[in-house]
Amino acid sequence: MQHRGNVLENAGTERRRADRRIFDGIPESAGRRLVTFRGGAAHAVCAPGSCTFKAGEHLGSVMLKPSPGITASLGSGKIHEYDGDVGTIMIIPANIASKVAWSSATESAIVALAPESLTELAEREFGTGRAELQPPPFGTVDPQALQLAQLLRAELTRREAPNEFYVDSLVTMFGVHMLRNYAGAGKLPQGPKGGLSNRSAARVREFLGVNFSSRITVAELAAVSGLSPNHFILAFTKTFGEPPHKYLLRLRLDFAEKLLVESDLSIAEVAHLSGFSDQSHLTVTMSKYRGRTPKQVKLRR
């Protein structure tokens, strides 16, 4: 019972974080954004312009298309001029004023993490509360950050609603990447590289089997397994042969098909009971991953 209580307490903390308005400085017209339990992610396409802001969260921005003619400064530092190549990363620590101007259109993925969230990741991943970010030189290209940014763009620009659990996983991995490369945490010992133990795998499988239709976070599952969030994602994937968000989606689709075949519930009711936001979300997802619509499944029973 104590373990379950800790899980719920952690989940409550993450949900309170989700209430923060972490992308107020980015116009909604720039692109879709999603606030998750750990932080948030946004896809932004901006015409030439400039901005000055100071966020309460740590921000990491990765350029998805080249944009020459950028000027930027952090805090009271001098202004730097550079050409933004694909993969150029800019890290802005929380509560540090920044100025950025760009002479051509830009496309980027932006990740935000609250200071307490990054500190928690540092404690869980590396056993230390050290989370003081050290931004890289302006114009630095980061191939690994680019891979995460491209995955975020693909998810945030889909026609259907983005998968919050998946985006939260990517935000978590981006946070760990920042700690390892831009906070001096890279010299700390790395976590286990194997899969989940049999006991942890059984706990996670049981937890998902009971709670798959609820709103689940990476932090909750990591707590159930006894691992840190990033290590959990890697260990889960190695153990089950697919990442957590795909495993969860498969459970929801399996249950939805079962209800469609064995009950007289409406498709909207099935969607709600299976963990989908609405009937349209279920229809789009089932069509994509199962090659048939809920209506077709009902007609074949």
Score class of each variant (00 low, 15 high):
145 A>G: 15
132 E>A: 12
138 F>W: 11
114 A>H: 14
116 E>K: 14
113 L>D: 03
144 Q>I: 06
140 T>P: 02
132 E>V: 12
118 L>W: 11
124 R>H: 11
149 A>D: 04
114 A>P: 08
150 Q>D: 06
116 E>N: 15
149 A>P: 02
143 P>A: 10
131 A>D: 12
145 A>W: 06
114 A>S: 15
144 Q>C: 10
130 R>K: 12
116 E>P: 03
120 E>L: 13
123 E>P: 00
121 L>S: 09
120 E>P: 00
117 S>H: 09
123 E>M: 14
137 P>H: 06
116 E>S: 15
149 A>T: 00
120 E>C: 10
127 G>N: 05
120 E>Y: 08
137 P>C: 05
149 A>K: 07
129 G>I: 05
147 Q>G: 07
129 G>P: 15
145 A>Y: 04
113 L>F: 10
126 F>L: 08
129 G>A: 15
130 R>M: 09
147 Q>K: 12
135 P>G: 02
129 G>E: 12
118 L>C: 04
115 P>L: 11
126 F>R: 01
114 A>Y: 08
144 Q>H: 11
119 T>Y: 07
118 L>V: 12
116 E>H: 15
150 Q>W: 00
128 T>I: 06
128 T>P: 02
127 G>K: 04
146 L>D: 08
115 P>K: 11
118 L>E: 08
136 P>Q: 10
141 V>C: 11
142 D>P: 00
141 V>A: 02
140 T>W: 05
117 S>C: 13
146 L>T: 05
141 V>D: 00
113 L>W: 03
126 F>V: 00
147 Q>I: 08
129 G>T: 03
144 Q>V: 09
124 R>G: 11
